[in-house]
């Protein structure tokens, strides 16, 4: 397999009130292979959406770089990459312009990228509407005429229109009814098989992730704490935070453990704790954890790495 996207020591900081800095993403490196799905998991406030926005070109990095198809993305190379990287948002109600007919919405990335002419864009929109399982007459209708699940299908069709190689899916299921979630999940799988797509699938929910992804990256307070193939992560999580997240997932045949959840709340990214950022809530914390930040290093299973002084080896 070949690398499609490489994220190299990426940091995103925001200025905050009183001259402070929000360190939303801090020194994050990972990669996505062609055709692979990588889940980016974390609580709200972990910086996962900021990271996703940066990959989709909606946010500029403070430092570090992105590599796409082997080429570092700069001001000069971004425009060409834009049609190859698309994004699907969480809220299907805010994601579609209420004043545009569906055909224009779907073909919009083509129009912006000046791909094809009006007729060829219409044809492409018609193909895509069928591919995402909407009736053909949807093309001339407006977003308010559709349900949440249908709108998310339209958003997916829009993301697919310029034939991208990578789709950043920012919690695309969490705003939908449970009954609709699996339909949209299946659609994401189908289109991936049809066009050999990669996903950066952002989620706060490990249970959803289990059905779709190849690898999982766990984000805590803007730092990557563990990256592992899905089976390895679910079978033997190496980082105590991953373990805690897994314990919070209800599973059939096993009672949800009561006091397994992590204590307290995530510290503010304005003022992250020194050393390992997780030590304030970690059951395994030792004196060293509050002093030395751990590096992301290989753990027990091949392909698995974790940033913890006392990772499960």
């Amino acid at each position: 397999m070949s690398e499609l996207l490489g994220v190299d020591r990426l940091s995103v900081h925001f200025p905050a009130r009183g001259g402070q800095t929000v360190r939303a993403v801090e020194n994050v490196s990972f990669s996505i292979e062609a055709g692979e799905t990588l889940a980016l998991v974390g609580e709200s406030g972990s910086g996962k959406s900021t990271l996703g926005f940066t990959v989709a070109g909606l946010q500029t990095a403070t430092s570090g770089s992105l590599r796409f198809q082997g080429e570092t993305l700069t001001k000069a190379t971004w425009p060409a990459a834009r049609s190859k990287i698309q994004i699907v948002f969480q809220d299907p109600f805010g994601a579609l312009d209420p004043r545009m007919p569906v055909s224009d919405i779907i073909a919009e990335p083509l129009l912006i990228q000046r791909i094809g002419n009006a007729a060829s864009r219409r044809t492409r929109a018609a193909e895509l509407v069928e591919q995402v399982g909407l009736p053909r007459d949807a093309l001339n209708r407006y977003p308010h005429e559709f349900s949440g699940g249908q709108r998310q299908r339209i958003a997916i069709a829009r993301a697919l229109s310029p034939a991208p190689l990578l789709i950043v899916a920012d919690e695309p299921l969490s705003a939908l009814d449970v009954s609709i979630q699996s339909q949209v999940l299946n659609l994401l799988k189908e289109v991936q098989e049809a066009s050999h797509l990669s996903y950066l699938f952002i989620s706060h929910d490990l249970a959803v992730v289990n059905h779709l992804v190849d690898r999982v990256a766990v984000l805590y307070l803007g730092r990557l704490v563990e990256v592992a193939p899905r089976e390895a992560l679910f079978a033997h999580p190496a980082h105590p935070y991953t373990k805690a997240l897994l314990d919070a997932v209800p599973r059939i045949g096993r009672a949800r453990r009561r006091h397994s959840g992590i204590k307290g709340e995530m510290p503010s990214p304005l003022n992250p704790p020194p050393g390992c950022v997780f030590h304030t809530r970690c059951p395994k914390a030792q004196p060293i954890c509050s002093k030395v930040p751990p590096a992301l290093e290989p753990a027990a299973t091949p392909g698995q790495s974790a940033a913890c002084h006392f990772k499960e080896a």
Partner: peptide, 22 residues
């Protein structure tokens, strides 16, 4: 701040397009 504006930006839309269209 709407997502449809973000989607157009991710596709590479410039300010004039954004203002006129969205």
């Amino acid at each position: 701040e709407r997502d449809y504006v973000r989607a157009a930006r991710a596709a590479g839309a410039g300010a004039p397009y954004m203002m006129a269209t969205h």
